[in-house]
Design a binder for these strands. Structure first.
Lengths: 127, 127
DNA sequence: TTCGTATGTCATATTACCTTACATGCAGTT
DNA sequence: AACTGCATGTAAGGTAATATGACATACGAA
């Protein structure tokens, strides 16, 4: 379907991300400082966030509620970003496969049903 | 489908709208001055645009290319925002009907196929 | 030419964001 | 109780990205 804004396009200023996530600027910057997100920057050094970043911030909130710390959350993201080794057989995945899997499993909004993603967080902003 | 950002939510600063539409700030403000768009404002008076606003700006560009002036474009928007009188019979539309028609015919992204909307303008920002 | 329209450009003001630094509340340790 | 580390609050000082208003300009129509 061709009618969905690119989730990776940096279009949101921090003020809007604060509203969408109910996080403070301090929190958002702190998470960036610890490598959990990497928002784009304008020429003038202002952070610009994508919808993908917003999804990630909501995940971070959730993990924090569950008692994880920065290091733990970072690990979770690292795990989620590589194809998991379900069986022990070598899979012989091509780069293209990896990219497809990443897209389908990691990027929220593609398959919202995976266990890595909670449903309903962004639902108030969708119609 | 529940997975589309509310098109009416003001989330975009003017700099991003400039990129998305390839309009200058001057142009965007001028169109607002003439009542073609009505972006929201922050507490500090900065304009914040919705995706709906972006669609409208792209329409304005198109109409300008076709030689319309501000007044003409405004009329077009007024026309598009009311249910057109296809047959001369009284239709007995309920308020709910009117709202549905408005949604389906006016709001871009719902039915992108109507003659009121050009396809492909925003396509580079969608996937 | 003169006029109107859409847009460019500049000056000046203010907001929204930046970084840095220090403060604070709390959970575990010792 | 005192000490530590972590996540967050908060304040100071700097600047990018807006805002408005005024004047300039290109161009087509009268």
């Amino acid at each position: 379907m061709a009618n969905r804004v690119r989730r990776s396009m940096p279009i949101l200023p921090i003020s809007i991300v604060m509203q969408l996530t109910e996080l403070t600027a301090r929190q958002i910057r702190y998470y960036e400082e610890h490598g959990l997100i990497s928002p784009a920057r304008t020429d003038g050094n202002k952070r610009m966030f994508s919808l993908y970043d917003v999804d990630k911030l909501l995940e971070i909130k959730d993990y924090l509620d569950q008692g994880l710390n920065m290091a733990g959350i970072k690990k979770m993201f690292e795990m989620a970003s590589r194809p998991q080794n379900v069986m022990s057989e070598p899979k012989n995945l091509s780069d293209e496969d990896v990219r497809r899997i990443f897209r389908e499993e990691m990027i929220p909004g593609k398959s919202f049903t995976g266990k890595n993603f909670r449903q309903g967080d962004l639902s108030r902003f969708y119609q």
